[in-house]
Design a protein around this nucleic acid. Structure first.
Lengths: 233, 233
DNA sequence: CAGTGGTCTAGACCACGAT
DNA sequence: TCGTGGTCTAGACCACTGA
């Protein structure tokens, strides 16, 4: 008999995890339904539901109405990445943050940006290039395009002391976005700014944000060589 | 007056999102407490709780007992990455999956692996190197170390047709892990296997998995140049 | 101390979907 | 069709934490 009562959802969560881990319930197995588990654990069905739903969100269980709950065949690892404001990421590591704007011009969209933001060729974009530094050393190069038709206030923002990164978060609402991670050989200009060897392998993040199908901004972040993005599973 | 009733947690979720987006509630603002919102929306407090808790998980709200709920100052973007089995990632793209084992030896842990897995120097590890291909083209190189003291069955697994990637998921339970993403210049041997230029920029994933503080396995994945890992925000 | 979020309960109804 | 998960409700108690 158990020395601990299982009467809260975290305890149920833990116990179910334990049974999966101990292979009492193997991948593909059907596990008892919520009502039966609630009876077994001596708690309400809603409590079991919360625990199982959380485990399903984490990818350990597959749940389908009528078909019941099964242990996932392929425990899909879901990594939750926090994408913080760059300033906070740096300060969070105990380093001093500084910022330099390198360039700021308004120009018609290049073909690559047209495709990315799904805009017409003649659309004018505000193009801002800036460098974020940690303890005085180049950390990441920010190459950003802003649709000034969607964010007119950006025209008046200097971006000389506050990065476009932070300004947009505070000023421009968005509904959704997409993000991509890749490795690229540093373009020559980026290498120059980051004080790295040209064509060095750099971690790149491309992000686009949208406000109800109107593109707000697109940004490329080139991290200085050696950058690692980490998380727990 | 609203044409839609707000009587389920998703509707509450959406309405609160809308108010944040419309800047009715600005970053840093205190929003009404759960009981008041429940009264306003005409639903139970538990329903409001579920909606607000979900928004807090997504990083849009900051909640603290007694202090109340505030709109997050820095809407931390949380990207949820699915880390699928490599076979599924390739087949999911509609490409043909194939697999080749390149090497398989048992050797004492190198210093780099000792630190990573927190094991003693003399610990023998099974070292498996393999290539995953999509439509016959090199996709990712898998460089893996397995602690055969923790997973003794691995000694008998040939890994010639089933990748260590899949075998371990099915056979070796784990409790947690960590994962890191970075960009590296391809080591010469990896470049050879991937048929890429040596020192080309490659996307690398390093993953370690643990079973209650015993290291199960460590793996480095070197993706062929051009690989992008994408998700929605 | 007192206000707020966090959770549990028992019961109810509904939506989906396998058979 | 009908079993299963998904959700809502009204009420209750508790845990944390700011004042």
């Amino acid at each position: 008999m158990n020395t601990q009562e299982i009467n809260n959802w975290q305890a149920v969560h833990e116990e179910v995890r334990r049974r999966i881990h101990a292979r009492d319930w193997k991948p593909g197995d059907l596990i008892p339904n919520e009502a039966d588990l609630a009876r077994e654990f001596g708690c309400a069905r809603a409590t079991v539901n919360r625990a199982l739903r959380t485990l399903a969100d984490a990818g350990l269980l597959d749940r389908r109405r009528k078909a019941g709950t099964r242990v996932a065949l392929h425990p899909v690892g879901k990594a939750v990445l926090d994408i913080p404001v760059i300033r906070q990421e740096i300060e969070g590591c105990g380093m001093a943050y500084s910022y330099v704007m390198l360039d700021r011009i308004t120009e018609p969209a290049a073909t690559s940006q047209q495709a990315r933001l799904r805009i017409r060729a003649e659309t004018p974009l505000l193009h801002v290039t800036a460098l974020h530094l940690a303890d005085g050393r180049p950390y990441v190069l920010e190459d950003r395009w802003i649709d000034i038709a969607v964010v007119p206030d950006a025209t008046n923002a200097p971006f000389d002391t506050t990065s476009a990164n932070e300004w947009l978060l505070a000023q421009a609402p968005y509904t959704h976005g997409d993000i991509a991670f890749s490795a690229v050989a540093l373009p020559e200009m980026a290498a120059l700014a980051l004080k790295a060897r040209p064509a060095a392998a750099a971690f790149r993040i491309e992000r686009n944000t949208w406000d109800n199908d109107r593109a707000v901004t697109a940004v490329d972040l080139y991290f200085a060589p050696g950058y690692r993005m980490q998380t727990q599973l």
